[in-house]
C-alpha cells in the first residue's frame, strides 16, 4: 500500500472513531491545536453534514423522536452504514432497516415504518411527476374477449405502502403541522396509532406528493395490477388468497373508476 493510500485509510478510520489512528496523528503538523483536535473538525463535518442530509430527508421522523434522539440515531447510522456513492441524494435509504435492529426503538415499533414511508415521500418530492391520461376512447372499443385480457398499469411514480400501524395518518398529521404551523393545535389529538393502514405515495404535481390511505379492496386491486395480472382474474385470485369477500361487479367497477379518477391507474395493456 502506498503512503498516500495508508494515510487515507487511517484518515477514514479516524473520521468514524476518535483515537483510532495514532499513526495518522503522528503525521499531522501540530501547532496551537493538537493533531487530534484538528482531526475532530473533520470528524464533526463528516457527522454534521450527513446528519443535515438525514434531517432534510426525514423531518417528520425527527419531530416524532425529538432532536436529541434524532442526532444520536443519525450519528450511529452514519458511523455504521458507509456512504457508497459520491452523490448523497440517495443517502438514508437504509435508515428504516437500520432502525428495525435498534433495541432503543423496540417500544416504538411503528417508527421504522414511518421512516420507510417518509423515505418514499422524500424520493418522490424531488422527482418530476409523470402525467398521463387514461386512454378511455381506446378502452371503450375493446370487445368482451379483449376485456378478459386487460392488465391495468399503474402510475409509474406510485409506491404502495401498508403498515400494522396508522403511520400514513401519522405522517399526514405531522407533515401538515410542519408545513402549516399556523394550525397550532396538537397534531396528534384524537389520533389512534394501533390500527393497520394501507395506501400509496404518488407524485401529483411538481414538488407535490400525494400520501393517501385507501380501502383494503383498492389496495388489493393495486397489488394485483402491480403483479401484471389480468383484472378479470382479480376476484378469483382474491378468493384463493383467503379473502373473505366475493366482490360484486358493481363494487369492482366503482373501485376501478376511483383508481382511474385518482390517476393511480393510468393505462392498460392486453395480456398475451
Amino acid at each position: 500500500m502506498s503512503d498516500l493510500a495508508q494515510i487515507q485509510q487511517n484518515f477514514a478510520q479516524a473520521l468514524t472513531e476518535s483515537g483510532t489512528a495514532p499513526q495518522l496523528t503522528q503525521q499531522i503538523e501540530a501547532g496551537v491545536f493538537s493533531a487530534e483536535q484538528k482531526l475532530q473538525i473533520y470528524r464533526n463535518n463528516f457527522i454534521m453534514s450527513l446528519t443535515d442530509a438525514l434531517q432534510a430527508t426525514y423531518p417528520v421522523l425527527a419531530v416524532m423522536v425529538g432532536d436529541i434522539y434524532f442526532a444520536q440515531l443519525a450519528k450511529a447510522f452514519i458511523r455504521q452504514i458507509p456512504v457508497q456513492q459520491p452523490c448523497i441524494s440517495h443517502f438514508g435509504d437504509q435508515l428504516p432497516q437500520f432502525m428495525r435492529g435498534l433495541e432503543s426503538l423496540e417500544e416504538h415499533p411503528y417508527l421504522p415504518d414511518l421512516a420507510q414511508l417518509e423515505w418514499y415521500y422524500s424520493c418522490q418530492i424531488n422527482r418530476m411527476p409523470i402525467m398521463s391520461q387514461f386512454p378511455f376512447t381506446d378502452f371503450s372499443k375493446l370487445d368482451s374477449t379483449a376485456q378478459e385480457h386487460v392488465v391495468f398499469t399503474l402510475n409509474p411514480s406510485l409506491v404502495l405502502f401498508q403498515s400494522e400501524w396508522a403511520v400514513i395518518e401519522l405522517f399526514q398529521r405531522i407533515k401538515r403541522h410542519l408545513t402549516e404551523p399556523e394550525h397550532a393545535t396538537d397534531p396528534l389529538q384524537g389520533f389512534i396509532l394501533e390500527q393497520p393502514q394501507c395506501g400509496w405515495i404518488k407524485g401529483s404535481a411538481m414538488a407535490e406528493v400525494e400520501v393517501q390511505t385507501c380501502q383494503p379492496l383498492l389496495f388489493k386491486i393495486l397489488q394485483h395490477c402491480q403483479q401484471g395480472l389480468p383484472f378479470s382474474q382479480f376476484s378469483q385470485d382474491a378468493t384463493q388468497q383467503g379473502g373473505p369477500e366475493i366482490y360484486s361487479v358493481e363494487q369492482l367497477q366503482m373501485a376501478l373508476q376511483q383508481l382511474i379518477a385518482s390517476s393511480v391507474i393510468t393505462s392498460y395493456h392486453l395480456a398475451t
Binding site: 502506498s2 503512503d3 498516500l4 493510500a5 494515510i7 487515507q8 485509510q9 484518515f11 477514514a12 473520521l15 503525521q27 473533520y42 463535518n45 463528516f46 453534514s49 450527513l50 442530509a53 458507509p82 456512504v83 457508497q84 456513492q85 459520491p86 448523497i88 443517502f91
Partner: peptide, 22 residues
C-alpha cells in the same frame, strides 16, 4: 482534495499531503 477510500464516501473535502507522490 479526496473524499473516498475503499469505496466509502465521506461527503467532505479532505486534505492530501503535498508530496511528489500525491
Amino acid at each position: 482534495s479526496w473524499s473516498s477510500v475503499s469505496g466509502r464516501y465521506f461527503n467532505d473535502l479532505l486534505p492530501i499531503p503535498y508530496t511528489k507522490q500525491s
